[in-house]
Design a protein around this nucleic acid. Sequence first.
DNA 1: ACAACAAACGTAATAACATTACATAGAGGT
DNA 2: ACCTCTATGTAATGTTATTACGTTTGTTGT
Lengths: 131, 131
Amino acid sequence: MKTQDLTRNQSLVFSALNDAKTPLTAYAILDELRGEGFRAPLQVYRALEKLVERGLVHRLESVNSFIACAHEGASCCKHGLTGFAICTACGNTMEFHHHGVEHQLEALLGEKGFKPEKTVVEIRGLCANCA
Amino acid sequence: MKTQDLTRNQSLVFSALNDAKTPLTAYAILDELRGEGFRAPLQVYRALEKLVERGLVHRLESVNSFIACAHEGASCCKHGLTGFAICTACGNTMEFHHHGVEHQLEALLGEKGFKPEKTVVEIRGLCANCA
DNA sequence: ACAACAAACGTAATAACATTACATAGAGGT
DNA sequence: ACCTCTATGTAATGTTATTACGTTTGTTGT
Ligand SMILES: [Zn+2]
Ligand SMILES: [Zn+2]
Ligand SMILES: [Zn+2]
Ligand SMILES: [Zn+2]
């Protein structure tokens, strides 16, 4: 469950995401890792799948990109709904957690009998530096 | 600003979405409208762009699909953040508006100096019928 | 009616994102 | 040695979205 037992491909993809200051698309990761021997999209997608399963990486659905978890993996997502504020100018992305929003959405959906499995909260806009 | 002054293509796309009980992808709409003379994706995407601009249609970013607004267009989005609960089993999608969530997100992001432009709240899960 | 302009449209090609299919390699248990 | 599970390599394909270019249509001002 620790970053140590990642495979080579997983480790390379995870490093690429950690080095990046912004979210990366799968194909951007592929290009970064051609020097390490990557040749095909599937090498990236397979690694991403495992990393997302472990909570080390998050997928940003509204921008078809991936970003390393800002909260040290295992402890993430245990403290309220996970959301992202994505700057459309510089790409800087802030991961946040919020109990209040989580509870309000739970209350609203509970009333309707809806059982949430995956909640996407992504806000695009301008960060403090770019505003 | 009313549905009357839609062009033929816009009107056909809007009808397809209104008839559907679930979100549709652009290519699904294209297939529906081949009988009406549609031949290319761009015919759909251009119509969708205008319909989204007018608030008659919403784009569901987490499922690459589009859905007719449940709240009569113009009045939508004036009453709190717009969110969607999408059933992954039957496709049924509930559009909702929520002031509390909107205010909490505004407060959180305001603190950080982030200026929101587009907020995506999409919850995938099971609706009351499918749970 | 006519020119000028803007919006919408038709078509083809291409780009960007993601998955399926199938063969191979290595680790661990029996 | 044999089986099984996981990861990998490679190619092909499927899905979603945009760019480019030329034409048509509708509106406005003269
Ligand atoms: Zn996280
Ligand atoms: Zn920024
Ligand atoms: Zn709406
Ligand atoms: Zn359902």
